[in-house]
């Protein structure tokens, strides 16, 4: 199908207004969906257990003395931070989108008076409050164990951290829309995304703190987008970054957000023109 079916193209501001009006409802729908499928929701959360496994391993390693300037306590706060940030910012847009493109259910969504990207955003944002609730015990332990270094007790750094969380969410969301929209063109979009995930696991700080990587890998991680999806907010939270470094990282992160946002929208526009729904 083509976009011709959409009523006369409205201006951008009126579109934003419409989205703003619809958003609370969309969020409410999302939240009640989470509540309805709560068992499934919990199982999904439990699948993010790698940080805890890595924490156990580093604990065993650091039992006889600190590694670099990470002692057992620093590892605890780091990996609990990874767990919290990961659960708050991750989503599954790429699977959803590539599936909807492939089986044609996207065509019905294109007919709705709201752009599918906004609908997807609302869908995944509405999971955040419940996720925050579930991981709050982990955050409490983190705050208790790492209190003396938490955000370096600096209000400015706290603001940077909040901004970095929002940035990480947007960055992950946009990269996933981009990869998912590749399904408009190629069959193995999910395969490409899996390659991306593999690199992400290493260069985002998910498996090991970036400091522990060899020097050249750490340097690469500083310029690539992966660190800004996870490692950077965690480092800010547990007090590994000075205010100066954090501000620079924040600027880089939001630069990436803008870049991937534009790329995602661009690929989407071209792709949707390509799209001839199968079923629907």
């Amino acid at each position: 199908m083509s976009l011709d079916a959409v009523p006369a193209r409205p201006g951008f501001t009126s579109e934003l207004g419409r989205v703003a009006k619809a958003f609370p409802t969309l969020l409410r729908v999302g939240v009640s969906e989470v509540v309805a499928y709560r068992a499934e929701f919990l199982v999904w959360i439990l699948t993010t257990n790698m940080p805890l496994v890595m924490l156990a391993i580093w604990h065993a390693v650091a039992a006889d003395g600190p590694v670099g300037h990470f002692d057992q306590r620093a590892f605890t706060t780091y990996y609990l931070g990874v767990l919290a940030v990961r659960l708050l910012t991750s989503n599954w847009v790429v699977w959803q989108l590539s599936m909807e493109i492939r089986d044609g259910t996207l065509s019905a969504k294109l007919l709705r008076p709201i752009h599918p990207i906004y609908a997807l955003a609302a869908d995944h944002l509405s999971a955040v409050p419940m996720r925050a609730l579930v991981i709050s015990p982990a955050v409490a332990i983190l705050a208790y164990v790492g209190w003396d270094r938490l955000l370096r007790h600096d209000g400015a750094l706290a603001l940077v951290f909040v901004a970095s969380l929002v940035g990480a969410w947007l960055l992950i969301f946009f990269t996933m829309i981009l990869m998912g929209a590749l399904a408009f063109f190629v069959e193995s979009a999910l395969g490409i995304f899996e390659l991306w995930l593999g690199v992400h696991a290493i260069l985002s700080g998910y498996l090991v703190p970036l400091e522990a990587l060899p020097h050249w890998a750490g340097a690469a991680a500083n310029v690539l987008p992966f660190r800004f999806m996870l490692g950077f907010p965690v480092e800010a939270l547990v007090g590994l970054l000075s205010r100066h470094d954090a501000l620079w990282a924040l600027a880089a992160q939001w630069g990436y957000v803008a870049f991937f946002g534009a790329a995602a929208v661009g690929v989407w526009r071209v792709g949707v023109r390509h799209f001839s729904a199968y079923g629907g």
Partner: peptide, 28 residues
């Protein structure tokens, strides 16, 4: 084409599996 991509993914994940082990035994 999928076959090639999947093969590449398999090799990549083998590397990803090894990295934490290498890092851990890099310090101990």
């Amino acid at each position: 084409a999928d076959f090639v991509v999947k093969g590449l993914i398999a090799i990549l994940w083998m590397g990803v599996t090894l990295v934490p082990v290498l890092v851990v035994f890099g310090v101990r």
